[in-house]
Write a protein that binds this DNA or RNA. Structure first.
Length: 436
RNA sequence: GUGGCUAUAGCUCAGUUGGUUAGAGCGCCUGACUGUGGCUCAGGAGGUCGAGGGUUCAAGUCCCUUUAGCCACCCCA
C-alpha cells in the first residue's frame, strides 16, 4: 500500500462529511460576528514577506522559522501565518481611516505556518478572527473578548477559561523589562536553558514557560501592572469592569504575554483544558502601535483569532462534531427499471432540480433493487420509480421512503409541485431520528 | 530543529514462545421467484502485513536503515 502521492505534511483533506462540520462552524461564527457589527474582509492569502517581518517581529519564532516563503526574482512573498498584518495593511492601503475611522472586521480562512504538526496543530490551518480598528475604548476590549467567548458559546463549547492581562504601552514595558530583569538576573542560573535564552531574547516569555521549576522561581516576581502608568492601569480596570457588566467571568493572569511582538495593553487567551499541546482556543489583544509602525495612521486596534483546528478537536471531544458531520441527504431519488428509462430519469432529474428539489439518480447501471438501496443510503425521502409500464401510461411511481407507501402521479402534471407538497406536508414523514 | 510512540483489508483493530493458503467487526458488492430500500440470512470482492536490507530451513512476528503518521518540546490559533 505504497502511495505515490500523499497530502503534504501538516495538511488535511476535508472530505464531504467534515466539510459539513466546517460549514456549520463558519455559519455559526458568521452569524454571531455579524450580530456584533463585524464585516467580513478578505485580504490575500500571501503578502510581501517584509510585512510579516515588520508586523509580527523579526525575532519571533513565527517569522524566524515558521514562514512559508516564496521567492521569485527580487520579490518575496509569504503565505500568511496570521491575518492581523494583512488586515492592518489593507486598512492603511485603502485609507479606511479617512472613510470611517472606526471599523470592525472579521475574517475566516486558512493560515500557514511551517512547523511540526501535532495535536490541534497543522501547517495549513484555519482561523476565525476579528480586528476592530480605530478605537481605544476599553468597552471595545470587552466586546471583542466577549465576542470571542460568544463564538465558543454558539458552538456549544463549555468549560473554557478566560485569562486576561495587560502589557501596557511601550514605556510600561520598558520599565517592566528592567524590573523583571532585575528580579530574574540573580537567580538566572536556576532557570531552564530555554528561559536563560529567553532572558536575552524576550524576557517576557519567561513568564509563560511550561517548566514548573521556572514558574516556582517566578513566584514573587513583579508584575507589569504594578509599575505601569496610571493610564494603563485605568484602562485595564475599565476593561475588567465592562467584562463584569457583560456577565463574563475571567481571571487576571500576569503570565499571559503572547508571542507576537505587536501586542499592547489588553491581551487575552481562551483556554480549554485537556486539548493537548495547545489548549489555547483563542488568542488576542490590543495592538495600538501596529498601524503606525506599518506606515499608517496612528490608530489603535484590537483583535483576536480562534483556531479552528483546536475547535474541531474540542467539538469532537464534546460529542458535538458528529451530529454536524453528516453528508447532506438528497430528497428525491429516481430509479430507472430498464435501460430504456435511464435517459428519461436523467431528464426528469434535471426538470425537478430546476424546480428546486435535491434530486439524484443511479450512474452505475445498478439493478432496481440496488438503486433503491442507494436511495436509502442517501436518506432520500421520496423515490420515483420509472419503468416501462409507467412510461406507457404516462405516470410515475412515487414511493414514500419513510413509511414505504407508494402511489402513482401523472408525468405531465406538475410533478415538482406535488413532490414539494408531499415533503412540506409531512406526507413523506419527518426525518427519523434527530430533531433540529 | 530535538525527543517518544506507532505502521496488518476502505475504516477500527486481532494475530499466541518466528512455523502450513494472514483473521474479525464495520463498510462495500451480489443473491434470497420475474421491477422496490432499511431488518434478517447466505455468498463475494478486497491485503506483495509502510518501504529497503539482514538473521533463519522458515518472519507480519527478531535486528538495522528509511519513510510516513501520531504525540511532546520549541513556538503558537
Amino acid at each position: 500500500m505504497q502511495l505515490k502521492y500523499s497530502a503534504p505534511r501538516g495538511t488535511e483533506d476535508f472530505l464531504p462529511a467534515r466539510v459539513q462540520l466546517l460549514n456549520w462552524i463558519h455559519a455559526a461564527c458568521r452569524q454571531e460576528l455579524e450580530r456584533h457589527g463585524y464585516l467580513e474582509i478578505r485580504p490575500p492569502l500571501f503578502e510581501d514577506t517584509s510585512l510579516f517581518r515588520r508586523a509580527i517581529g523579526d525575532v519571533t519564532d513565527v517569522v524566524e522559522k515558521e514562514m512559508f516563503t516564496c521567492e521569485r526574482g527580487d520579490t518575496s512573498v509569504t503565505f500568511r501565518p496570521e491575518a492581523t498584518a494583512g488586515v492592518a495593511r489593507a486598512y492603511i492601503e485603502n485609507k479606511l481611516d479617512k472613510v470611517r475611522p472606526f471599523q470592525k472586521f472579521y475574517y475566516i480562512g486558512p493560515m500557514f505556518r511551517f512547523e511540526r504538526p501535532q495535536a490541534a496543530r497543522q501547517r495549513q490551518f484555519e482561523q476565525v478572527g476579528v480586528e476592530a480598528i480605530g478605537s481605544h475604548d476599553p468597552r471595545l476590549d470587552a466586546e471583542v473578548l466577549h465576542l470571542a467567548a460568544r463564538l465558543l458559546d454558539c458552538l456549544g463549547i463549555v468549560g473554557y477559561r478566560i485569562l486576561i492581562n495587560t502589557l501596557g504601552d511601550k514605556d510600561d514595558r520598558a520599565q517592566y523589562r528592567t524590573a523583571l530583569g532585575a528580579f530574574v538576573r540573580p537567580r538566572l542560573a536556576s532557570f531552564c536553558a530555554e528561559c536563560q535564552a529567553r532572558f536575552e531574547r524576550n524576557i517576557f516569555r519567561l513568564l509563560d514557560c511550561k517548566n514548573r521549576d521556572c514558574q516556582r522561581q517566578l513566584e514573587g516576581a513583579p508584575s507589569l501592572v504594578d509599575s505601569a502608568s496610571a493610564a494603563t492601569r485605568q484602562h485595564f480596570t475599565e476593561v475588567q469592569n465592562a467584562l463584569g457588566a457583560l456577565g463574563r467571568s475571567f481571571e487576571v493572569d500576569p503570565r499571559i504575554v503572547r508571542g507576537l511582538d505587536y501586542y499592547t495593553h489588553t491581551v487575552f487567551e481562551l483556554r480549554l483544558p485537556g486539548l493537548g499541546a495547545r489548549d489555547t482556543l483563542v488568542g488576542g489583544g490590543r495592538y495600538d502601535d501596529l498601524l503606525e509602525e506599518l506606515g499608517g495612521p496612528q490608530v489603535p486596534a484590537i483583535g483576536f483569532s480562534l483556531g479552528v483546528t483546536g475547535t474541531l478537536l474540542a467539538l469532537e471531544k464534546a460529542g458535538i462534531a458528529e451530529k454536524h458531520s453528516r453528508e447532506p441527504a438528497c430528497t428525491v431519488f429516481i430509479v430507472a427499471i430498464d435501460d430504456q428509462e435511464r435517459l428519461a430519469a436523467l431528464v426528469l432529474a434535471n426538470e425537478l432540480r430546476q424546480n428546486g428539489l435535491v434530486v439524484d439518480l443511479d450512474f452505475e447501471n445498478k439493478s432496481p433493487k440496488a438503486q433503491l438501496r442507494s436511495a436509502g443510503k442517501r436518506d432520500a425521502r421520496i423515490v420515483l420509480v420509472l419503468g416501462e409500464s409507467e412510461r406507457s401510461r404516462g405516470v410515475i411511481q412515487v414511493k414514500n421512503m419513510d413509511d414505504g407507501s407508494q402511489h402513482e402521479l401523472p408525468m405531465d402534471g406538475d410533478l415538482a409541485f406535488e413532490l414539494q407538497r408531499m415533503l412540506e406536508g409531512g406526507n413523506a414523514g419527518q426525518r427519523s431520528g434527530e430533531n433540529g
